[in-house]
């Protein structure tokens, strides 16, 4: 038995919003792989829960008229990895979430939960930052869309207003078109481990594949929330593809990140793997985009 005070179940987004308004102290539960564990540990003991797990309308990936990819917030990790639209346009996201926990966790864990928990090590987060994802939030005043960068306020805290739930993650066409990316999860074990560092890079090359038109890089666990490395991006944008560029790009991340010492790894070690992962992920992204270096 879980130590919960009450459970309210929503069958639709409207019901979920109405329940949020009626029970402002209640906490949302999606797949529950964070919430139920924290309830067991006593952190959320005695809480009221609003279950949104039954809202099937929030499951699945689709494409909007303007090309935007729409990932319903309740889509599980395993369904993201298997999805044909994801595989075609943003395969790196499917690969990143295929490194969460183990198979059973990937069947229950949702992308909405992975972003609403505000955790820097979340395996989807660095890739969503690196692809300029937009978060869709639905509340009593309707729908609002917010860049994922602004959605994260501080460690463990996201910009969810009273009455709101997250209903989708959107990837604009401008963000994925002609773009290829790679994610590296550095952890102590291959499975069932939280990232010591997560690195997601993507590139768009010129038509002749010789110039980097745009590169984007984001890290998880390099700061209290996931972050982009702007200096590194500026170093590579518009430059000819080469090994030297990969080196300069990866060294530049040192100006952007501020990892911390923790029991998992020291600051110096995180700095070291950040540079190395940036380099490897950049090289792999260029290769996926058809470039040679």
């Amino acid at each position: 038995m879980y130590d919960m005070k009450a459970l309210y179940e929503a069958g639709s987004v409207d019901e979920a919003v109405a329940l949020r308004v009626a029970h402002p102290d209640a906490q949302i539960i999606a797949g529950g792989s964070d919430v139920l564990v924290q309830m067991r540990e006593g952190k959320r003991a005695g809480a009221e829960l609003i279950s949104i797990y039954g809202i099937d309308a929030l499951r699945g990936v689709s494409q909007e008229a303007d090309g935007t990819l729409r990932i319903g917030s309740l889509t599980s990790f395993s369904h993201i990895t298997k999805d044909p639209l994801i595989q075609q346009y943003i395969n790196v996201l499917g690969e990143a979430v295929d490194q969460v926990g183990g198979p059973q966790i990937r069947n229950i864990g949702t992308i909405g939960g992975n972003t609403c928990n505000g955790v820097t090590s979340a395996d989807s987060a660095s890739t969503l930052f690196a692809w300029d994802a937009i978060v869709e939030l639905t509340g009593p005043d309707g729908v609002r869309r917010q860049p994922i960068h602004d959605f994260y306020l501080k460690a463990g805290k996201v910009d969810l207003h009273p009455g709101e739930i997250q209903t989708a993650i959107l990837i604009p066409k401008e963000s994925y078109e002609n773009t290829f990316g790679h994610y590296i999860k550095y952890a102590m074990r291959n499975a069932m481990d939280i990232a010591t560092l997560g690195t997601s890079v993507n590139v768009r090359l010129s038509a002749d594949k010789k110039t980097v038109e745009r590169t984007r890089i984001a890290f998880g666990v390099a700061g209290p929330v996931p972050l982009r490395a702007a200096t590194a991006e500026q170093t590579a944008n518009g430059q000819p593809v080469s090994q030297e560029l990969a080196e300069a790009f990866s060294q530049a991340v040192k100006a952007d990140i501020n990892p911390r010492d923790s029991w998992r790894a020291s600051r110096d070690f995180r700095m070291h793997i950040a540079v190395e992962s940036a380099k490897r992920a950049f090289i792999e992204s260029v290769r996926l985009a058809g470039g040679e270096l």
Binding site: I29, G32, S33, L36, S51, Y53, Q104, N107, I108
Partner: peptide, 8 residues
């Protein structure tokens, strides 16, 4: 496959 211990 689901871990039924973290499933309501």
């Amino acid at each position: 496959a689901f871990n039924s211990c973290i499933y309501l």
